[in-house]
Simulated scan of single mutants.
Amino acid sequence: MRLDILNHGYGAGTKLLFALIRLFSRHPVPDAAKLVFYRPDFYGAQAKQFTHEAMRGPSAWSIGDRELMAAYVSKVNESAFCISAHTATASQAYDDSPRVAAVLTDLESAPIEEPLRATLRMLGKLTRDGKLATNDMRDLLAAGASSQQIKDALAVCAAFNTTNRLADTFGFALLSPDDFNAGANYLLKRGYH
């Protein structure tokens, strides 16, 4: 059920901003962007800061790797909007759509490095089960992921488990492939703030 607040819950300044974005970009404002403008003091400002740091802050993981993590967590959560948005962004970041599709189709046979595969496996388990064991971390370290990479991946997981639930609760509208690609281009140029 789509909550109407995403269509009408803004002041005049924000409505004008959305109109200008639509005019100059020739694409609709995604509901993810609309959500952070609704009550920014309560959610939006903090969410943008946390997500930007997780997705674009310093990390041994590339931007493509972190966007792939976001797409993978979204797939485990079956969040259609976020799967599409972050598949498009990861595909552009890597400049390799088949690689991203392979990971989302079959993680175990996808052509990726073992530390990333093991990290995605761990993020999937955490997202599905809501918990991890000590051996999960040992396995991840043995696969070649560093302690800092694990922390960085967990930040991506936290950001997108939250975003996925909000996307589904608010009924984010699915966009066209062109609109998702335009959004991906924006995220790669400007990030999440």
Rank of each mutant, 00 (worst) to 15 (best):
V100G: 05
Y94P: 03
E67G: 10
L104W: 07
P115F: 09
A102V: 02
A80P: 00
R121M: 07
P98S: 08
E108N: 14
T127H: 05
R56T: 13
A80M: 07
S62C: 09
L68R: 09
A85Y: 04
G124K: 05
V73C: 09
R56G: 00
L132R: 01
F50D: 11
R56M: 14
A88I: 00
S84C: 12
D65T: 04
T127E: 05
D129R: 08
V76C: 10
S59G: 11
A118P: 02
S74K: 07
G57V: 08
A101M: 04
L126H: 01
K48H: 01
T127C: 04
A80L: 13
R121F: 06
Q49K: 15
G130A: 01
T51L: 04
G57T: 11
A110K: 08
Q92E: 13
A54P: 06
L126Q: 08
I112N: 06
P58K: 14
C82E: 15
A71S: 11
A101L: 14
S97I: 09
A101Y: 02
V76R: 13
S91Y: 03
A90G: 06
A101P: 01
Q49W: 08
T134G: 11
R117W: 01
S97L: 15
P111F: 07
G124N: 03
A93N: 07
S62F: 05
D96Q: 05
